[in-house]
Design a protein around this nucleic acid. Structure first.
Lengths: 170, 170
DNA sequence: TCCGATTAAATCGGATGCGATGTAAATAGC
DNA sequence: GCTATTTACATCGCATCCGATTTAATCGGA
């Protein structure tokens, strides 16, 4: 029972069925947005579970891994800069970064020129960790094809539209 | 690659340059899967934030709303059945369902024929809530177009591949 | 029939997200 | 210069997620 990954239709791979799950037949739900937000919602959960077998052995959670990947882009990033990349704020990031520091994957240091800011750098151990590139194993296991890039673009566009809409209203 | 899209400087109002977000330049990251999982990850957060202005006034969280929508499909669903739709288990659902019950949006009752199971039904208040169809407002505010259906399908396929991969490994 | 699996929820603890608030450092304005 | 404001993190509390375990009910085989 290892996993939590029960999928619909236990005991079968249900061919590309239209197992859309969710607000579908029944005529109850009207908004297409509901379908899409649920698809994203569950796909995000699915990614977390797909990465788990790869991340568990190296002692990282899914979120910690994402943070490390973003940190690997550039040394000396501040919490705020990282937050812009990840769309997260210090209230969420600070505990995660402290955890990653305690695990020895990164260093946090106040910027001498501006003591308000905390700058972060991956340690050798942190960099080594990413070199195994866990994402590759996941992509292969899931047999993700080439539409990957297009889909990434479409989802990123969607995200940006949603964030723009939010700023308008608020 | 990924981010060349003129994303509108997400987290802030400052006209920061085209913040590409994530594993892009720098040549540090290799796997396309990383781009995609991050896009999904952040799109999910964005959906939650987009729905917030609509859901806050009616006193629901994003997850609670998703659960209600799934519950509206059919009366008398069990926790397990709902969990199959949402890819969640009782450890996550039970607290949420208890909360929704305490808010008066649904009823939970043990099945007399099998006391292990809990069956749920929306109350009139719960049904009324969904009739406002909050998703419509979000879709309009975000100006989501018609690709919506295609994207939903692509993301759902991705999710199913990931879940299948997880079952294989585990 | 009786007892050991199996099953469906629920509970518990750890790790996110996130709004609201706190704190210290830097900046603005006079 | 000196204070009011702003900025960058950090803290706190609540609401998810999720693995592991528990409890209660049902099922199954000898």
């Amino acid at each position: 029972m290892a996993a939590t990954n029960d999928a619909p239709k236990p005991g079968s791979d249900a061919p590309t069925d239209a197992s859309d799950n969710m607000p579908v037949q029944g005529g109850e739900i009207r908004s297409l947005s509901n379908f899409l937000c649920f698809a994203i919602y569950s796909a995000n959960l699915a990614f977390g579970r797909a990465y788990k077998p790869v991340l568990d052995p190296i002692g990282l959670t899914y979120t910690q891994y994402i943070a490390l990947v973003a940190l690997a882009q550039e040394d000396g990033q501040t919490v705020g800069a990282l937050g812009e990349k990840l769309f997260l704020e210090s209230n969420t990031l600070t505990p995660i970064l402290k955890k990653l520091e305690s695990l020895g994957f990164l260093e946090r240091r106040r910027d001498p020129a501006d003591e308000r800011q905390v700058r972060m750098t991956l340690t050798a151990a942190g960099r080594r960790l990413l070199e195994t590139d866990p994402g590759v194993a996941v992509a292969e296991a899931a047999e993700l094809g080439d539409e990957l890039a297009d889909l990434q673009r479409a989802v990123a566009d969607l995200r940006d539209k949603l964030l723009r809409a939010g700023r308008k209203v608020a």
